[in-house]
Simulated scan of single mutants.
Amino acid sequence: MLMTTTALLGLLHRLQLTPTAIDVLSVMFAHSEAGGDVNMKQSEIDEVLGVGQSSMSRAMALLVDRGLVLRSGNGRGHRYALNPAIAGYASEDQMKQEMSNQLAVGGPPPIVVPEYSRRPPKRPSGGLHAVA
């Protein structure tokens, strides 16, 4: 059983992910190794979900843009890993060691939370009212 940090759960609604991107992230979590390496190709994740290549590419690009998924390599040989800040670990000691390693090199890659495209609604004036 892998341990994960719970900070992602608090941000999930603010990350503005598509349903397909959430599904892709779920498959990646389920198939990740301790530390976040995902030994699946994009086409293999698509086989699990059955969403189609173009939807899969858009979802993966969104996850990479948000910093949740790290991509290495180029062309068709991309390798994927979960951001170390959200990856699962075999033990608390392993998680602490990885976070120490990340802090030694400037910290894990940032998770990008989009700004509001419009302001949140204003709070109504007059305080709270009881409803009978």
Results as ranks from 00 to 15, higher is better:
2 L>F: 09
2 L>C: 01
3 M>G: 01
4 T>E: 12
5 T>N: 11
6 T>P: 01
7 A>L: 11
9 L>Q: 08
11 L>H: 09
12 L>G: 02
14 R>E: 11
14 R>P: 01
14 R>F: 13
15 L>T: 02
15 L>M: 07
16 Q>N: 14
19 P>T: 03
23 D>V: 00
24 V>D: 02
24 V>I: 09
24 V>K: 01
25 L>Q: 03
27 V>R: 08
29 F>E: 06
29 F>L: 06
29 F>S: 02
32 S>R: 01
33 E>L: 10
33 E>V: 07
34 A>E: 05
35 G>M: 02
35 G>E: 01
35 G>N: 02
37 D>H: 02
37 D>C: 11
38 V>S: 06
40 M>C: 07
43 S>K: 15
44 E>L: 10
47 E>T: 08
50 G>Q: 11
53 Q>P: 00
55 S>V: 00
57 S>H: 13
57 S>R: 15
58 R>Y: 00
58 R>Q: 11
60 M>W: 05
60 M>F: 05
61 A>F: 00
62 L>I: 04
62 L>V: 03
65 D>R: 12
65 D>I: 04
66 R>C: 03
67 G>N: 01
68 L>C: 04
70 L>I: 13
72 S>H: 04
75 G>H: 07
75 G>V: 06
78 H>Y: 15
79 R>W: 00
80 Y>T: 03
81 A>G: 02
81 A>I: 04
81 A>L: 07
82 L>C: 05
82 L>D: 06
87 A>H: 05
87 A>T: 06
88 G>T: 08
89 Y>G: 03
91 S>C: 11
93 D>T: 13
93 D>S: 14
95 M>S: 10
96 K>F: 15
96 K>L: 15
97 Q>H: 09
97 Q>G: 00
98 E>I: 04
98 E>C: 08
99 M>I: 04
99 M>A: 03
99 M>R: 04
100 S>V: 05
100 S>A: 14
100 S>L: 10
101 N>L: 11
101 N>P: 00
102 Q>G: 08
102 Q>A: 13
104 A>M: 10
104 A>V: 01
105 V>I: 09
107 G>N: 10
108 P>V: 09
110 P>I: 11
112 V>E: 12
113 V>S: 12
113 V>Q: 10
116 Y>I: 02
116 Y>V: 04
117 S>L: 08
119 R>Y: 00
121 P>G: 10
122 K>N: 12
123 R>G: 08
124 P>D: 09
125 S>P: 08
125 S>Q: 14
126 G>L: 03
127 G>T: 08
128 L>N: 12
129 H>V: 09
130 A>D: 15
131 V>N: 08
131 V>E: 13
